[in-house]
């Protein structure tokens, strides 16, 4: 595969974050883990939104589905009755190990995104945006209240906390590599052609519907995997995977530059890093001899300001939608 060097920068950034996460205290490490999972989610978003140019507000529902799949299957059977009293049928007994549960989360994301995409990928523009938003609403609503299939409003407690720094890093890297392989494949190129000029791409024999559906399914799988990683990190409440996460991950993508994989990774790391740093400062941190203790809410406020300013000053994102190129080094 040519242009393999484009993969260097995103991979190096993820690895660098993981290594940095290894040396900090365990209290701070949670922030690094969280940011790595955000990288996985934003890369999943990028596979569809970046390559197709169509906005989707539904991807966090695929993450929620990944959380649900991996969560329900890995809560120890002895504790299921206490955590999820309403659970019905085979869900009461079915179990999976750590890695199988992650893979099943990805499969759940893939299948659901494919099925949802079958009708939805016929839409475009605002109609597609609102319809994918509808998917988010419905999944959130059902998982929140239907307690026969999960913990409802409660958290997925007692899920084995297996997402350490390596599992998070490998998961994020897997997403980056899949996204890269997809974007260099003929399918990825065809979809990018439809993004640039739908009429010309159709005239060249590309089915916009099929290419969008494929990308939607692939990105659904990555989002599901990210959800699996997330529920293995901390006891997730399904309800928390809703508007806030949708906004912040979309903003990460756009701030980084939605037209490149590097943009997705840079955006997730930049906003995730800033948000983590400020959230940590709200609890008080010592930095270069200064003791920083910010009032609660500063993190959201600052992140909001930074996002707005970057969008106004540099609407094509930090990377301008370009991949890493060796020419940058030679210059």
């Amino acid at each position: 595969m040519k242009k393999l060097h484009e993969l260097i920068a995103p991979v190096a950034l993820v690895l660098g974050t993981a290594l940095l996460g290894l040396v900090v205290s365990s209290a701070l490490q949670t922030y690094f883990l969280d940011t790595l999972i955000k990288v996985a989610i934003v890369v999943a978003l990028y596979v569809f939104i970046g390559n197709s140019g169509v906005l989707s507000f539904g991807h966090i529902s695929f993450v929620a589905l990944g959380v649900w799949t991996a969560g329900v299957l890995t809560v120890p059977t002895a504790e299921r009755a206490a955590i999820m009293p309403g659970l019905a049928g085979f869900l009461r007994h079915a179990t999976a190990g750590n890695v199988p549960s992650l893979l099943l989360a990805a499969v759940a994301g893939l299948v659901f995104a494919f099925v949802a995409g079958l009708p939805l990928m016929r839409l475009s523009g605002l109609a597609a945006g609102i319809a994918t938003f509808g998917v988010l609403e419905i999944v959130n609503n059902v998982l929140r209240y239907y307690d026969k299939i999960g913990p409802g409003l409660n958290a997925f407690s007692s899920v084995p906390e297996t997402t350490g720094i390596w599992q998070a890093a490998i998961g994020a890297l897997a997403c980056v590599v899949v996204a890269f392989a997809y974007q260099r494949s003929r399918f990825g190129r065809q979809l990018r052609a439809t993004r640039e000029d739908p009429a010309a791409a159709s005239a060249a024999g590309i089915s916009i519907y099929r290419q969008r559906l494929l990308a939607f399914a692939v990105s659904g799988a990555l989002a599901g995997l990210a959800g699996g990683l997330y529920v293995h990190l901390l006891p997730v409440e399904i309800d928390s995977l809703y508007l806030d996460v949708t906004f912040i991950t979309l903003a990460m993508l756009v701030v980084g530059g939605s037209n490149s994989l590097l943009g997705a990774v840079v955006g997730a790391l930049a906003i995730g890093g800033l948000d983590s740093f400020l959230s940590a400062s709200e609890n008080g941190v010592d930095l270069l001899g200064w003791h920083l203790n910010l009032p609660t809410g500063t993190a959201e406020l600052t992140v909001g300001v930074v996002m707005a300013v970057i969008l106004i000053v540099r609407p094509s994102g930090i990377t301008g939608g370009r991949e890493f190129s060796l020419a940058w080094v030679r210059r």
Partner: peptide
């Protein structure tokens, strides 16, 4: 005004950012 000539996606996400910002100002 500064974003008038940009793509609808960028403008929409910018209004997200403003919404997020105003909400966090209200919380604070």
């Amino acid at each position: 005004r500064p974003l008038r000539t940009h793509s609808p996606a960028v403008m929409l996400v910018a209004t997200f950012a403003i919404a997020f910002l105003m909400q966090s100002i209200a919380v604070l």
